[in-house]
């Protein structure tokens, strides 16, 4: 794109997804991140609400800071279908020309951002954890959006810029930003976008959703995680881990060793071949802390390690470490926490 074309794109958009009849809460993190960018760029902060029967959420978005809400409301958007969602958003983006498009780096969001990048011939940054507007990039002085993302399993951070095309498409790492605060009574504009999915090429059919049987908190959006590894020794050990997690209001994570042993499902695996998490508190029970595990949780704010081996890697990186047998120690801690609550 030529410079004069780039400057026609205005507005920071945050993608508000409605799934299984609820607004996905990550939108409030996007609105927080987007507010700062919008103010620095001097552009409006907007939300784009996507789903089926979604109108009732427009006000929540406005009260969380959106000056405009674009509404993409259609039965075809009931569930996440990669190609359908990408086409719907491409319609809205081509029409309203935002300069930045933020979506949560969830399972859906990461595929969506990637499809949108190529569909719109624009740059896309994945799983971004910091956003800023910089004026001194490589000697240029015009303000540029800069996105920081981790690579090599969290061992490097790359700052990327998007000099050539708009909108800048970014999937934002869950939990990397706080949630936007509610400003009761705030008003904003609502804009309906007309969609004609019957005209689109859609070759994917959504068949059904099977909810996770164990209605655990999801580790991707939890601010506290209690994770356990091989040191747990047996599947039943997760009963104690869950009890501990429950008291703390934490989600349950696991090392690959625990997942491979069949003690808990893959969804809970933290690490290089599992999921990357960045909670405020990560408690590792009986996990040695091999690099592949550290790759998934090394950026947590406070890391606590509880292990029999005082010299294992996780005990060395932990902000707080306890040398103990977890079967002896955790029941005592649970007991103390229960006493505290009463």
């Amino acid at each position: 794109m030529e410079t004069n074309e780039l400057t026609q794109y205005k507005g920071v958009w945050c993608c508000a997804e409605v799934r299984r009849g609820a607004l996905v809460a990550a939108i409030f993190e996007l609105l927080h991140a987007g507010r700062k960018l919008a103010d620095q760029l001097g552009e409006p902060l907007c939300a784009v609400l996507v789903g089926n029967g979604v109108k009732k959420w427009t006000n929540d978005l406005i009260e969380a800071g959106a000056e405009k809400v674009y509404v993409l409301d259609h039965p075809a958007l009931e569930n996440f279908v990669d190609e359908t969602h990408a086409q719907a958003l491409a319609v809205a983006i081509r029409q309203a020309k935002p300069s930045v498009f933020l979506v949560s780096a969830s399972t859906a969001g990461r595929s969506l951002a990637s499809r949108l990048g190529v569909t719109l011939n624009t740059g896309a940054g994945a799983d971004v954890s910091e956003l800023s507007v910089e004026t001194l990039v490589n000697g240029t002085t015009n303000a540029q959006v800069c996105a920081v993302r981790s690579t090599h399993g969290g061992n490097l951070f790359a700052s990327i810029v998007f000099p050539k095309a708009r909108p800048i498409v970014i999937s934002v790492r869950p939990m990397a930003f706080p949630r936007a605060e509610k400003i009761a009574g705030k008003t904003g504009e609502i804009i309906d976008i007309a969609l004609n999915p019957s005209e689109w090429k859609v070759r994917t059919k959504f068949v059904q959703f099977m909810p996770e049987e164990n209605a655990d908190l999801d580790i991707g959006s939890a601010d506290k995680i209690v994770a356990a590894g091989r040191g747990l020794g047996k599947a039943e050990g997760f009963g104690m881990v869950r009890a501990f997690a429950k008291i703390l209001g934490a989600a349950v994570g696991a090392s690959r060793a625990a997942v491979d042993a069949g003690w808990i499902t893959y969804r809970h695996q933290v690490g290089l071949t599992g999921r990357t998490v960045r909670p405020k508190l990560y408690i590792a029970l009986g996990i040695s802390g091999q690099v592949q595990h550290l790759a998934g949780m090394g950026q947590s704010e406070t890391i606590v390690a509880i292990n029999k081996d005082p010299d294992c890697p996780l005990m060395k990186v932990a902000s707080l470490s306890v040398e103990a047998d977890l079967y002896e120690f955790i029941p005592l801690v649970i007991e103390k926490l229960k006493q505290q609550k009463n």
Partner: peptide, 19 residues
């Protein structure tokens, strides 16, 4: 369409408090 402006290593985590 994206340019890497700079790369950095994260601050090294050193052990904290031992109970």
């Amino acid at each position: 369409l994206t340019k890497i402006w700079k790369r950095q290593t994260p601050p090294v985590r050193t052990g904290g408090v031992r109970i």
